[in-house]
Each structure stands twice: as C-alpha cells, then as structure tokens.
Nucleic acid binder design. Sequence first.
DNA 1: GCCGTTTTCGGCCCGACTGTTTTCAGTCG
Length: 567
Amino acid sequence: MKNSEIADVLDGIADVLEFEGDNVFKINAYRKVARRIREIPEDIEQLYQSGQLSKIPGIGKNIAEHIEEYLKTGSISKYRELLSRVPSTFVEMMKIPNLGPKTLKLLYEHFKIQTIEDLKNVLEKPEAINLPGMGEKKIQNIKNGIQLYLTKRTHQRISLGIALPVVDEIVKYMKQVCKDISPCGSLRRMKETIGDIDILCTADNKDKVVKRFISYPGVQSIIAEGETKSSIIVKDHMLQIDLRVVEPESYGAALQYFTGSKEHNIKLRTIAKEKGLKISEYGVFKGEDRIAGKSEEEIYKIFGMPLIPPELREDRGEIEAAIAGKLPHIIKYDDVKGDFHIHTNYSDGISTIEEIVKKAIEMGYQFIGLCDHSQTSKFAGGLNVERLRERNKEIDRIARKYPQIKIFKAAEVDILGNGEMDYPDEILAELDFVIGSIHQGFKKNVTERMIKAMENRYVDIIGHPTGRLISSREGYEVDIDKVIEYAAKTGTALEINAYYDRLDLNDVNAMKAKEKNVMIAIGTDAHNIKMMEYMTLGVAVARRAWLEKSRLLNCYDWKKMPVKRNK
DNA sequence: GCCGTTTTCGGCCCGACTGTTTTCAGTCG
C-alpha cells in the first residue's frame, strides 16, 4: 500500500508552501488529505483504479492529479519543484521543535543555511540575535529544539505499552494535589504509538499543582511552567509530559478538547458552528452563556450524540454514526474472557502452568490458551512431540485442580518455509487449537505460506499476521489484504497480538478484517504472568477498529474452539 | 486547494504560551 508514502509527500508539499508563506487554507487542504489517506483502511491505489479517489472528502481536481502522478511515476513534479527552492535538508529541519517555517525562512534568507550543522553555527552568530523578531531566548529555544530533535530522532513515537505505565505513575504522584485528573491526547485514545503526553486536572490550589509537577522525581528538564500549562521531559524514554490545570466547570470540555483527535474536534467545531454554538476547551457556548462543560457526556449530548468512546475519536465516521444513533457497541475492556496466546516454561516462557492459571483466575478469565513453540523454533525452546505430550499431561493434571477455568492445550506452530506446519496433522489433531505463525523466512513467499497454513483445518488462528515490531521491524513481505481474504474464505481467525511492541494486527488492518467478516482472536504472547496484562493493549486495538463482542473469539465464542474442526 | 439543500465566491477551528514587542507574530496542539 502506498497510502503513507503519498501522505508523506502531500505533507511535504504543505511544509514547503508554509515555508513560502502561501495561503494557510491551501496548506491545510493538503494536510487534511494527507492525514485522511494515512488513516483510511482502503488501498489508495485501488481507490484510484476504481475511480473513487474523489469520494474521499478533501480530494479535488488538483490533489487527485498529484496522487495519480505519484501512482504512475513514483513522484510528484510539483513537490520536486517546490523542494528545489528550499534548503537541502528542509524536510528534516521542519521537524525541529520551536523552529517553524517563518523562522527557518528568515534564517535561510539571511544566511543561506543548507544543513542542521549550518543552522547550529548560525545560531552562534551575533547577527542572528539582531534579526527582527529574534532574541536571546528564542535562539536558546531553537538550540534546545535541535537537541531534542536529534535525541528523539531515533525513537520518535513510543509504543502505548511503554507510555501507559510512565503516565500511570505520574498520575498517581499528582493525585495528592489534584481533584480530578486524567491523561488525554493519543494516550487516552489508546493509539498504538504515542508522541507527547497530556495530563489534565482540576485543583483547589493551582500553584501547588505546578510546583509538585515540575519537581517530579523523574524529571529531566522543565520546558514551561505557566499558570494553566506546564511541560516537562521525563528521563523515562525522554517523554514530554504536558500538565494542564482547568476549572471544574470546564473539566469535561477540556478533557474532550485535549483528547482529540484534532480531526474529530474540527468536525465537532464545524457542527457547533452550524448550530450557532461555539465549542472550546472551556465549554459549549451560546453567545456568552456556557451551556455545557462539566462533563464530556454533557458536551456530546448538546450535539445530539451519546458519549463517543475516546478510542473512536479519529473522524473516521464516528460523529456521523453517533448522530444517526448507529455507534457500534464496541468491545469493553472487561468483555474479554481469556487469552489465546501464552507461553509456559515448557518453551521460552518463564512462568509455570500453575502460575499462569492462578493469574488468569485472578484476572477473572474463563479460559486460557497455552501456546508453546513448536519443534523448529529451537531458539525459543520449541517442543518436540514427546515434550509436547508431556506438557499436555501436565496441563491435564493442573486442569483437574482448577476446574473453574478452561485450559486449552494449544501451540504456536511454525509455518515452515514451504508452507507446511511444523507438526504433522495427527499431532495437531491432539491439540485444542493451533496458532500458525511465521518465525523465519520473512521475505520468502509469506503470503502463499500463510494461505497454505489457513487451508489446513487444524490451524485456527494466524499469529501476529504482519510480523512488524513497532520499535524496530517493518514486518514480513506480506499482502495483508490477501491474507484477510483467505482468512474469510477458510474461516481462520486472525490474531491481534497484544504484546506492546507488536500490536499486530494494528487497528487499520483489524478494521479491514472486520469488513470481510473475519474473526479476531486477541492473544498477549505473554512469556511471564506480568505480560498477561498487555491484554488491555489488544482490546484497545480492537476498540479502535470498531470491533464488537461478536467479532472476537475472546468473548463468548471461545467455547467453539477449535472453530474450524467444529464446523 | 476544496467546498456548497440558501453559496461557483468567500469562507475554511481556535486559544494559549512565548518572546519580542508596545499591540503582535510565531509556534504548538
């Protein structure tokens, strides 16, 4: 799919136009389309071929032509031409915090800077300070921005699973001086990766809040300490945390506003305007009167909508659905009755079967799927047939001790280089269900091998179907659309692997799977009992993909396992 | 650049913070 490539180029065009001081609305038009293309589940190339490009709101004659040119030639002449008018490392320099297009242009025109190195040198010159609008502090801020950019470049956005505990700790720390407190932004929307983090609170003594915040033990540096907004960077992953203190009567409005997404809010504002209302982080206003603001429910109610779950707030049709009363009843965090993918200490996990079972009971589960690796995965302590049977006997023994929970004797079986499974069918038949996973040959006919695996009646689930690692790996060379198509055809479920660095399927692909009526199974891929708690992340992906309970094997349909053999 | 059950022209979300100014521009979210 070329969606993100094209989105990047359109954003690039917007960047240069901004640098040149072009019409802001024109710039926004490009940005809107870029964002939209990045988010839609459909393949932009297919939309183009079926003549449906113009159906995407925001794409008119011009941008449609740009997209067509990109699809045909791999680049856009307008963008090439624009780039020839700016410094050579323009694209990078635009990402430096505190340095916007206007300042960059000012420095470029006076000093002809070409690289970040040039920029650094120029900032040391006394002439720079004397430019109109420049000053000592501004120079220092840009220098800090460069520093931040260079350190952040390697790990720009961070996985939700990393950010959540960091934020939990800060929230706990701040609770002492706050009345209400909640994270907002992409973290509250449970996006798979998080940039900056916003925390919102109310308090009797605002001063106390700011003071406590900037003296948080994990603080690396303080960026701002205003009356309503303070920002710090914490040592933990160099995350930037913004804290806002608001009045109680605006808490709901602020929570709504700062949770975003930006696109969701813009749509909401447009609707407000149509109704002669004004919505801001302070509330919904009719003239001078605040008619809502204390709670989020109140705000959505004004516009004739039920509360939209934060995970859906991406302007992917949720506002229209809410108005029409057709918001789906997406899965809730406690709807999950078990975990399909847990490794025991028989292969490369470190927890015993009994420890896992106890943890599962504590989590309120009705079932768990114990999935150790198969024989070829030697690096992961894969079980040969004999060990597998030993493990299964042990499971039977533990199962008699804990009759309140169903323990599936399952396995994560390698899909081999030729598409065969790593155990013969008669062994697979001894298992309660089978997850088929690719662990080797990431570039070798992955799509065909997965299809062959799905055609096997013992393979119920395809594990981590794209193989991506958020922090470090692109994933397999796989045609995910084709995999989804065959999953539908063969009745095979696809996994949402909830391990924090995988989240695979992601929300966009899970949405596609939903459209084709493919069943989804969430598994944590836990290697110890602590990791079983990553289930939250998997459910978040499902929620963001608009999945209802009926689409997830984890809710009531787990009893149908093994789904294909039981058909 | 896009868009339109009042519009093919005239709109397009809006406020806070910072720093440089002395009323505002740039940046951010």
